[in-house]
């Protein structure tokens, strides 16, 4: 009995330690980027020499403002499309019986199994040769949304499998029309899943290189600017911008943590 208890504690603390190590591993490069953003020389940041030149250049440089704006447009545009398709698609699959259900699930998930690079080049050639569309932010949003929809769908499916759809039946019997029912019952119980799907598909598109690169045409986003600036060495603005983006992300996490800590919003978790 005692041995079993010890084993339990060991495996719990062992896996917990692994998680901490993973966070360290994942965030070490981020920390490194933030560190270099304050360094005089990006390529040779040791020994440390502080400088805010990157931030100054970022403040005045038009290129990066535009790239950030384009990346945000791409991320939000793709996330809206993905969340929309994934929400109605996953509700259909979970709520209704149909012999086509399996086929639909496979179709929604198949972009997961196609590499970004392949999505990038195939949509480049397809748009160019078949649809006669030039590369621009629109075609990049579409190509990214294909990829993101699959992720969003998977996330929503996994989170909503336990939702009791008979709650919707109950609402309908008591007089709620379909839209009202969605607004009053379905949405309040499933919005964390939708938020998760939105955030993930935003992240995937915001900084996507391999899909966007082939579909953006002359439009510049953050990663394509980074790719372009590599030839003549990374500019100091990029780490500065990345540091700022991460600052916003950490702030959002802090807010989320406080909301959870004081049980203001549970984000779908039920005690």
């Amino acid at each position: 009995m005692r041995r079993a208890r010890t084993l339990d504690v060991l495996s719990k603390s062992g896996s917990g330690a692994l998680l901490v190590l993973l966070y360290v591993f994942l965030y070490a490069p981020i920390a490194y980027i933030i560190y270099t953003s304050f360094s005089k020389n990006i390529a040779w940041p040791f020994p440390p020499q502080l400088s805010l030149r990157g931030y100054e250049l970022l403040w005045v440089g038009r290129t990066y403002h535009e790239a950030l704006y384009n990346s945000l447009t791409l991320g939000i545009g793709s996330a809206v499309v993905c969340t929309l398709f994934a929400t109605i698609g996953s509700i259909a699959v979970l709520k209704y019986r149909s012999r086509w259900r399996r086929l639909i699930v496979i179709t929604y998930l198949c972009p997961l199994f196609v590499a970004n690079l392949l999505i990038g080049i195939s949509s480049l050639l397809f748009n160019r040769q078949v649809l006669n569309l030039p590369g621009n932010i629109g075609s990049a949003i579409i190509a990214n949304a294909v990829h993101g929809t699959a992720f969003a769908f998977l996330i929503m499916l996994a989170q909503m499998v336990r939702y009791d759809w008979r709650l919707d039946d109950a609402a309908m019997v008591f007089g709620a029309r379909p839209l009202r029912c969605f607004w009053e019952i379905t949405l309040p119980n499933t919005w964390p899943a939708m938020l998760g799907a939105f955030v993930i598909s935003f992240i995937l598109a915001f900084n996507n290189l391999e899909i966007s690169f082939y579909n953006l045409g002359a439009t510049q986003t953050l990663p394509s600017t980074a790719w372009g600036s590599l030839r003549h060495g990374l500019g100091p603005e990029l780490p500065a911008l990345a540091a700022l983006v991460n600052g916003v992300v950490f702030l959002a996490f802090a807010v989320m943590y406080l909301l959870m800590r004081y049980r203001i919003v549970s984000f779908g978790h039920r005690e």
Partner: peptide, 17 residues
């Protein structure tokens, strides 16, 4: 549809929102 029928219903497992 159910929402136009003017009936009440009590469900198994209650199904309270």
């Amino acid at each position: 549809p159910p929402y136009s029928r003017n009936i009440g219903m009590v469900f198994q497992n209650f199904l309270l929102f």
